[in-house]
Amino acid sequence: MSLTTAQRGKIRRLSQPRELSPDEEGGELNIVPFLDIVVNILIFVLATVAVTFTASIETAPPASKGAGVRAEIPQEALNLTVFIVNDGFSLKAAGGNIAPGCQGTGSGIAVPKVGATYDYATLTGCAARLKGSSPEFADENQAYITANPGTDFQTIIAVMDALRATSAGDVLFDNINFKVSR
């Protein structure tokens, strides 16, 4: 027995998929412009954060006239002081003024400028050599900086960087304090 026309019609009608009402469809809120804005802001914020990474260097109040609030320094300490002068870096340690070329003691500028720029790499090498000159200095991490009144802050930070560690990452003097010569 085959289906009648009426039965076929009814089957056709009932087998059609039900259309969703507008309420059930969802998605009528157009959030694409909002999404554009959010994505743009997100990229902008990420780019800005990546550019300005800041850090901070710790230090203590400056000592004047050679005195100050420093920790007690043992007799055998290196007690390194770097003077930033117009011609370069003059270094003074427990034994006296460091001679030019960072060899022994003597008068003169230990690390002169190269052309018009300060030689930070040689300063690092000199500090490493002085620290390694005696096993008693191995644990010493304190050094002092003093400078001409007109020396800019960038140079002082660069000297602190040069004294902090070698290029290989060995820590030299990570506790830098300022001195004032009056």
Binding site: T52, F53, T54, A55, S56, I57, E58, T59, A60, P61, T117, Y118, Y120, A121, Q154, T155, I157, A158, D161, A162
Partner: peptide, 13 residues
Amino acid sequence: KYHLMVIQSKKLG
């Protein structure tokens, strides 16, 4: 105690 603010850089100076 002071914290000197700097910008991180790859090059000394």
